[in-house]
């Protein structure tokens, strides 16, 4: 006769990620690297905003990028063309980066002279919000072409972010979206700071770069 028993496990499966994220964060602090986890949907403009920041800041700071994507080659090539260190991370079928991916990405890399590390997460507003990477600053990019109700569809990621960038505002009228509504919604969700930008027209990019500089200064 078999005996039935209840066995307690009590394991938080996110604990492993949190532990590795804390280790990553300690490594970044020891090397005085300010890390930005740039999240957002596919086509929101994450790559473009990072490229813009690289061009404006690379004379003052040493910059590296972790290019995370299901196939990292394409964005990785774009960043490399700007003359910065690039670490491609292809996630294959995974829809997000986790702390373990980042631990392996920086393992064996010479990061000693890096001031700023941008981590471009996989295009997705859902899964990345569950996984801390060890970053200092969480950035969420949304494009007006995603529709101006996109923020309220994903309140958790906007609650947990340090800055929301509403991007491509130059095409807002053509896609019938209100950038102001998106900004208001991000504040309603509890986001601390919102910027309206257009990489094509240049709106808000000075503020984006000023924000990055402030974060670096505050982290030193």
């Amino acid at each position: 006769m078999h005996k039935v028993s209840d066995v307690k496990i009590g394991q938080d499966i996110m604990k492993i990620n949190k532990k590795i994220a804390a280790d990553n964060n300690a490594f970044f602090n020891a090397n005085r690297i300010t890390v930005f986890n740039v999240m957002g949907a596919i086509g929101s403009g994450k790559t473009c905003l990072i490229e813009n920041a690289i061009d404006r800041l690379k004379d003052s700071f040493s910059i590296a990028v972790v290019a995370g994507d299901v196939v990292a080659k394409f964005d990785s090539d774009r960043f490399a063309a700007h003359g910065v260190k690039v670490i491609p991370v292809s996630t294959g079928k995974e829809c997000h980066l986790d702390a373990h991916f980042i631990e392996h990405a920086i393992e064996g890399e010479d990061m000693h002279n890096i001031d700023i590390l941008f981590i471009e997460n996989v295009g997705n507003l859902i899964c990345p919000s569950d996984f801390d990477l060890g970053e200092h600053v969480k950035v969420v990019v949304v494009s007006v072409s995603e529709g101006d109700d996109i923020v309220l569809k994903h309140p958790v990621i906007f609650k947990n972010t340090d800055i929301t960038i509403v991007n491509k505002i130059d095409i807002a009228e053509f896609v019938g979206a209100s950038a102001k509504k998106m900004s208001d919604d991000a504040y309603t969700c509890g986001c601390k700071y919102v910027l309206l930008t257009s990489c094509k027209r240049g709106d808000g990019l000075k503020d984006w770069n000023a924000f990055i500089k402030e974060q670096v200064a505050g982290n030193r």
């Binding site: 078999h2 039935v4 209840d6 066995v7 496990i9 009590g10 394991q11 996110m14 569950d130 609650k159």
Partner: peptide
């Protein structure tokens, strides 16, 4: 957010 982001395996019921 200080609670509500956990994913915990509480336990299993087994036959021995």
């Amino acid at each position: 957010i200080c609670q509500g982001r956990e994913m915990i395996i509480k336990g299993i019921r087994i036959e021995r």
